[in-house]
């Protein structure tokens, strides 16, 4: 289990890069494509092995791209901009497919359902998770985050701000993380709130379910820790520490054995889930690392694992994961 730096593109965007996602290989395109979104209000696409730019940058994301998510079929992706618009676009042509408008500051992280029939968005200031269907792009429902039992009064007085969202790989669970550290878990089939997961007390910016144990959830939090939850049994089953500052992003390797995290301490770390410890630290970025993403399996001749990381230093790095 290790990472080896393959390539790094400095100045990939004109400004800080904030989001990255892999659009998986599809029938019409043999390889996966890396999408990145940045403060310079563009989304760019990159080839998977040499990080050569694919097509011109897609513009029109006012004030910067906050979050990116790719549809599991590989053709579509969604980008959230700071002015609370979600633009759904065709990965290859960059053409808009739909523009979903949310009330101001009511959308942040997005994720497609693993089967691809819904798009979930962390509802920011609305304190909820919003769901759209992916056929007509109409809102399905909005799942509110209830206040936890006996919660402390909110310090900022501005309600809960929901930052991140994650689907379990079997599509049965949906989790969302908020700025005060609460994580809400929903039954995604019956669209019902199940329970909160406790343990974090600062913003939870990123989370991901394990691909092998569909109820194991990994979370990244500003309190510098990574937690492992049994989301079904509502228990904290592991915690990993080592970052010197906020953990901004997390992704799990396709084999389910490792997670990678990006942090404000400018490093990317690789963690062994079984050992509950950090096995490698990459410090090639010179500013905080806002997103890490493992390439999904599948596609022509793709055996090797790939990890991409993007940072405020305007660069993209690609690593070999083996």
């Amino acid at each position: 289990m290790k990472l080896a730096g393959l390539k790094s593109v400095d100045g990939a965007h004109e400004e800080s890069i904030w989001a990255a996602a892999w659009a998986p290989a599809a029938d019409h395109r043999p390889t996966a494509v890396l999408l990145t979104g940045a403060l310079d209000e563009t989304v760019r696409a990159w080839r998977p092995d040499d990080l050569a730019a694919v097509g011109p940058p897609a513009r029109g994301h006012a004030l910067g791209v906050v979050s990116l998510a790719a549809h599991s079929a590989g053709a579509l992706a969604a980008a959230v901009s700071l002015d609370s618009f979600v633009r759904v676009f065709d990965v290859d042509s960059g053409a808009s497919v739909a523009t979903l408008e949310a009330p101001p500051s009511e959308v942040w992280g997005v994720q497609f359902h693993p089967k691809g029939n819904a798009l979930a968005a962390a509802g920011g200031g609305s304190g909820s998770v919003k769901l759209w269907d992916t056929e007509k792009w109409e809102p399905i429902t909005s799942l509110a985050v209830p206040r936890p039992e006996g919660a402390r009064p909110d310090k900022t007085g501005s309600g809960k701000f929901v930052l991140s969202v994650a689907w379990s790989p079997d599509g049965k669970l949906l989790a969302c993380g908020s700025m005060d550290g609460t994580i809400a878990v929903y039954d995604a089939v019956r669209m019902k709130f199940l329970h909160h997961l406790e343990g974090h007390h600062m913003p939870v910016r990123s989370m991901v379910f394990s691909p092998v144990d569909p109820h194991v959830l990994f979370t990244a939090c500003d309190d510098c820790h990574i937690h492992i939850y049994d989301a079904k049994e509502k228990s904290l089953i592991g915690a990993m520490s080592g970052h010197a500052s906020w953990v901004l992003s997390i992704d799990v390797s396709p084999d389910g054995l490792a997670v990678a995290t990006g942090s404000s301490d400018r490093t990317v770390r690789l963690w062994d889930i079984n050992m509950r410890s950090s096995v490698q630290t990459m410090s090639n970025h010179s500013d905080q690392v806002w997103a890490v993403a493992f390439r999904p399996p599948g596609g022509a001749g793709v055996r090797a694992g790939r990890l991409a990381s993007v940072s405020d230093d305007k660069s993209i790095s690609l690593y070999d994961y083996s």
Binding site: E15, S16, W18, L39, L63, G64, V66, L82, S105, W108, G124, G125, T156, S158, F161, L163, M179, P203, D312
Partner: peptide, 18 residues
């Protein structure tokens, strides 16, 4: 302005930043 945008991105709940 970019600094501020970064700040808003880092603390999206912070009304002061906005």
């Amino acid at each position: 302005i970019h600094h501020l945008q970064r700040w808003v991105h880092r603390e999206p709940w912070n009304q002061d930043a906005r």
